[in-house]
Design a protein around this nucleic acid. Structure first.
Lengths: 114, 114
DNA sequence: ATATCATGCTACAATATTTGTAGCGAAGTG
DNA sequence: CACTTCGCTACAAATATTGTAGCATGATAT
């Protein structure tokens, strides 16, 4: 486990420049990071509950990702469980249109294969 | 290399339902997938050129990801090289605001740590 | 024609990440 | 005091990614 947290401002996978977008892309392209954010948007969840929402994530990795997301302030933990932070919500709102887009995309792929 | 292409409609990592959004999140959370899309938005690029834009991707993996993205019709290949397809551009446009958002986020993180 | 070079890509071993199985210690409940 | 649930960790097995080579093809130069 040598993978470090992709802090904006420092080098990350894919860029030496330290540009925030590169740190973000590194973060989001880690297994389950997007899935966790997506699953949290429907409301706070405790550890095991979140694990179930994610269907197949190992507790080891869930915990690792939660730490990263906490450190980078995209999620926070309250009595009700883990939840998106203010910034996490903003991020989610940007990517939310992907849901509709993906349904169109799936349809187009289906047409193609006819 | 047993990882299959996350085709919408079939089971993917994170979901048995086959919902397109789950296939998409699976795809995008694979190492370098987002980076490739991001780097292609600045224009078409040939294989080795794209590899340089990505700074540190191995040719093995670049080729694997290109195949996935081609199969899922997010990129296409022309004489000028690899480029975003129409759908790829649409996808990019959804996530494009992440660039600005991430700069704000980076700033907020910096303030915090003072 | 032949040498040279760039291109897209693949083989394969080394390394890093993710999962799966098991279980611990703390906190709550009967 | 059992008994359960909770957040989390250890650690080995399975999988994904990188790094180092290099091949086959097509263009360009000699």
């Amino acid at each position: 486990m040598t993978m470090t947290i992709p802090m904006p401002g420092s080098q990350v996978r894919g860029s030496k420049t330290g540009k925030p977008i590169m740190a973000l892309l590194d973060l989001l392209s880690r297994t389950w990071a997007l899935g966790i954010i997506w699953n949290l948007h429907s409301g706070p969840a405790k550890f095991r509950q979140l694990q179930q929402r994610c269907e197949k994530i190992s507790s080891t990795l869930l915990n690792t990702r939660l730490k990263e997301l906490k450190t980078l302030e995209l999620i926070e933990i309250k009595k009700t469980g883990y939840q998106l932070s203010y910034q996490g919500i903003e991020l989610f709102e940007i990517i939310y249109p992907l849901e509709y887009w993906s349904s169109q995309w799936a349809q187009a792929l289906k047409e193609e294969s006819k």
